[in-house]
Amino acid sequence: MAILTSEPDSGQNMFQLLKGSRTDRLLLLISLILIVAAWFVIQARIAGGVAVAEIYHDQLLLATYPLPQAGEAEHSFVVQGELGDAVVLLDQQGVRMTSSPCSSQHCVLSGAHRHAGDIIACVPNRILITVRGRSASGFDAIVE
């Protein structure tokens, strides 16, 4: 067990353990900078314009629908995937999968999505839904 001689004594408190080594903290800093930079780049590319939901099956973009604004009616449609038909609902809360032939149902349980960059991915059924543009239910301003 010589490999563990540099590890802390079990009596050390959790705060000291959470500090990590200088190398750990450097790795964390580099990771955070890269992730945040990537996030800004992605948001700059997709956050502009009207909020829309894009529906893909494999490599094919099936449809692009604007997310309903306040007062607009909801609508749903059927998307044919690898396993069968999935139902997608667009309402003021965003876009959601209301039914899917997959066994895990993670895509249905993930609920509504409305922020730019949100995705619903049903891997077994090979369906991907992404949201682009400014959030349909987001506030531009609050006035009295």
Binding site: L4, E7, P8, D9, S10, Q12, M14, L17, L18, G20, D24, L28, S31, L32, I35, V36, A38, W39, I42, I46, E54, Y56, A116, G117, D118, I119, A121, L128, T130
Partner: peptide, 29 residues
């Protein structure tokens, strides 16, 4: 476009990875 969802999940991975590492140090000790 799948990668659009990656940055926030990577941030969460940083948190869980760091905490799990501290737990691993404790258990190893």
């Amino acid at each position: 476009v799948l990668y659009y969802a990656l940055p926030p999940l990577l941030l969460l991975s940083c948190i869980t990875g760091w905490i799990n590492g501290a737990l691993a140090r404790y258990i190893a000790a």
